[in-house]
Design a protein around this nucleic acid. Structure first.
Lengths: 132, 132
DNA sequence: AGATAACCTTCCAGTAGCGGGAAGGTCAAG
DNA sequence: CTTGACCTTCCCGCTACTGGAAGGTTATCT
């Protein structure tokens, strides 16, 4: 199985697959000519990585998740702990973005958006954040 | 005004202030000994930058906003356009994170999180995203 | 005068997670 | 035997800084 074929199947760019090998997430075999030879197990891992990454896990979290996946003696508590921490980070990020959104939406709605220079958005940025 | 003093007033680390100078956002004067000499205008700009960055604007957006702020002949429409685009990016990001959150929360709540190896989280990552 | 500490300077390297592109080897088809 | 489509490694670039090394300047203390 060549890298292009694996890229098509896993949905990951070939560049990303090479990168994952370079940081030790996968270890595909090599053909005599130096080309990578992927086995089914590699493809499963790459699919796992693609899905974990698409859920926003960091590459290091993915490494840990992959190790747990391979470890038949794992405790599901360890997986849940990783996922819960990530969930908490997502919640914090959403809260942060919603706060930005509220402030910015106020400023935008207050701006007439015409040819004149007066602008509440710039005024808001120019002034120290007043109590509200 | 030394950089440490400006850092204290603007809330930005000295490192960041040097970085902003290096990319041309500010141009503080220099004393004969080579030390930066900040004027009130520099401090205002840095405060502006700190607030714009804290609202999540990219540094390049900040450069454009700063230019508009300095341009007394600006059209507020230009400012509003920048801010609206940023608002849209924030909304898209929130939607993306909420989608991740929903999926991940489902998986986490389905996991018993004990000493046993069975884990719906890993199962969800191992399997292709089923239709739902 | 000398020492010490607290400033200041520049420059280099590293972070996350790749993407772009150069330079070069390999292989199947025509 | 050449073309073209693969494959390889390697290095730079991206964002927005942060840390740290190496070294100059200034004020204070003895």
């Amino acid at each position: 199985m060549t890298i292009t074929e694996v890229a098509r199947r896993s949905g990951l760019p070939a560049k990303t697959i090479r990168y994952y090998e370079s940081i030790g997430l996968i270890r595909p075999l090599r053909r005599p000519n130096g080309y990578r030879a992927f086995r089914d197990g590699d493809i499963m891992k790459l699919g796992f990585l693609a899905r974990a990454r698409s859920l926003g896990f960091s590459v290091e979290d993915c490494r840990a998740l992959l190790a747990l996946w391979e470890d038949k003696g794992r405790a599901s508590a360890d997986v849940k702990a990783l996922a819960s921490q990530h969930l908490a980070r997502i919640e914090a990020k959403i809260a942060e973005l919603e706060s930005l959104h509220a402030t910015l939406a106020d400023l935008v709605s207050a701006c007439s958006g015409d040819h004149r220079p007066d602008c509440p958005i710039l005024a808001g940025l120019a002034a120290p954040p007043a109590g509200r």
